[in-house]
């Protein structure tokens, strides 16, 4: 099933900008996928699935990985397969020099 979500906030910059739209598919997520999850404390959030199932943000302002926890602690809503931006469509791509670990 396909679902549409609107991005709010800046923690996924430069990958996602506020106002971008995400097309989600319900499938098994893989490392580096952009996932939308129902987080027990933070609500519905979009993050990247890091190694070991950890949720990480792409932007410097994102919550720490420690705070976000692992995907297994949150309910997967879907995996982003397409990003609809004001300038067109694109696939969610991995950041070339993405940081890892805590980023508080």
């Amino acid at each position: 099933m396909i679902r549409l979500f609107r991005v709010r906030g800046r923690s996924m910059l430069p990958t996602l900008r506020p106002g971008d739209l995400l097309v989600l598919r319900r499938r098994q997520p893989r490392t580096d996928d952009l996932v939308v999850v129902g987080h027990p404390r933070l609500g519905t959030v979009v993050k990247r699935l890091g190694a070991d199932g950890r949720l990480v943000g792409d932007g410097v302002e994102s919550s720490s990985t420690h705070e976000l926890g692992k995907l297994s602690n949150a309910a997967l809503i879907g995996v982003a397969v397409l990003v609809i931006t004001p300038s067109g469509l694109r696939r969610p791509k991995a950041l070339a020099s993405r940081r890892s670990g805590n980023r508080a």
């Binding site: 995400l22 933070l42 609500g43 943000g57 932007g59 469509l89 508080a104």
Partner: peptide, 22 residues
């Protein structure tokens, strides 16, 4: 065009938290 069209819809929000959190 597509973005403009779809943005008019009442879509659910996925938060990319701007939260160090400060």
């Amino acid at each position: 065009m597509l973005h403009t069209l779809l943005s008019r819809m009442d879509l659910p929000v996925a938060d990319a938290h701007c939260d160090i959190p400060c």
